[in-house]
Design a protein around this nucleic acid. Structure first.
Lengths: 228, 228
DNA sequence: GCTACTTTTCTTACATGTATAGAAACTTAG
DNA sequence: CTAAGTTTCTATACATGTAAGAAAAGTAGC
């Protein structure tokens, strides 16, 4: 019933079987596989054999595959998300710049989508950018609490944009059959849904356009002018 | 090399082996399992045996499990997303009401998250609400193209909010170990990241608050006042 | 009846994430 | 050296989605 306990503070040396693989080695190899062959080629078995170990040995260094992906994203973001030499002086521009930087880095790396839904905040490397956003919002007059809420709102918008678009793109690539949306949009009743019927022919191109920047502008304008 | 072709337009009667299961039966049974026991209890094998068939037989009626989930969401939304008897006269209020209705229905049903990333538009049943949003935006002065873009922006925000929050909640339920975010937030350097350090103790409660409505208000204000 | 064709169903097999149990390789106490 | 304890690694097994192909069950033409 009692676990192991009969010990003084313990000298904390290296007891137990010595490790043959390290978390760093796992991340390094996984990152190579992902960048060379894509995220769907990364399997625990493949990773294990490439390291020269067994699949279950990996699980003593990462909790599960999802945590491994989060770590990969962390590593990637640490290298890709560089701080600008001179952040804009205008706080509003700082917010835009930081959010845009996050958005650019994340959407450039398609496999990030699998991880974006996994953690509601970016990794350590992105914290500087988060700070820019929260700080910019406060300098624009928001209270700290409202600034945090504003950051969250921006994050929802950003993550949603990336996830929705990336998933749609992936689906188009995997599957050439007409998607559910295509079928729905072909026969719209113009008397019931006049606006959608009018826009139906242009819906595809319209939704293909990259409107993140304009949407972010609008969102930020609203955050700064709407009383809480 | 040639497929079967030697036929006139074909009389299109009922040729071939008669089907013993139908898509409708699949959806009905799947919906029962999901509502009774949760989405993670829904497996293709379980569904097949419960219908009295084999797993692979299902694949002649649905493309894959993801499509099945989309169909489930469609069915659920058709019942849950009711049109209000009298939509608000003010177009701005109509947009708010439609978006809020979508958001409410989707976040009330936790398993929708698995599907939200799968299709960038809601199913047929939600089209009326989409129409309300696009129509409301045009009546507020936006061009049709801008209204579609505006709808998409609102959708990104809505989907992102649901996905991010639901995933965080699910993670907390599955795993009681401190999450990555918790660890990151415990030791913040106040000189490097002063705003985050100041907010760190309140971060948890702040992000737990439901701010969808205020974020939506702000977003809509921005969409209507920001020139494209 | 029989043959050709079509559509649905079934059998088998594989790839994958990961749970579980225990073996292996160390350190430390006696 | 031996025994106990601790950590890491290995072997095995299971649940799951689904690809590939064979088999079944019908219809149409002879």
């Amino acid at each position: 019933m009692m676990g192991p306990m009969p010990q003084p503070p313990a000298p904390r040396k290296t007891t137990g079987r010595p490790a043959r693989i390290s978390r760093a080695e796992i991340i390094r190899t996984a990152l190579r596989i992902v960048t060379e062959e894509g995220v769907n080629r990364l399997t625990m078995r493949r990773l294990a054999t490439e390291i020269g170990s067994t699949p279950m040995a990996l699980y003593h260094h990462v909790r599960d595959k999802e945590e491994l992906l989060v770590l990969l994203l962390d590593d990637y973001a640490a290298r890709a998300l560089r701080r600008p030499a001179a952040p804009p002086a205008d706080p509003r521009e700082r917010v835009i710049a930081a959010a845009t930087a996050i958005h650019e880095v994340l959407s450039a790396c398609p496999w990030t989508v699998d991880v974006l839904t996994a953690d509601d905040l970016l990794s350590t490397s992105a914290l500087w950018h988060v700070e820019q956003i929260v700080d910019g919002l406060t300098e624009c007059g928001l209270s700290l609490d409202d600034a945090v809420h504003g950051y969250r709102t921006i994050w929802y918008y950003t993550a949603g944009e990336i996830v929705v678009r990336a998933t749609a793109a992936r689906r188009r690539a995997t599957d050439d059959r007409p998607t559910y949306r295509d079928r729905v949009f072909t026969d719209l009743d113009p008397t019931e849904l006049p606006r959608l019927a009018e826009a139906s022919s242009r819906w595809g191109p319209l939704t293909a356009e990259n409107t993140y920047a304009t949407g972010l502008q609008a969102l930020l304008n609203g955050l700064l002018t709407t009383p809480a």
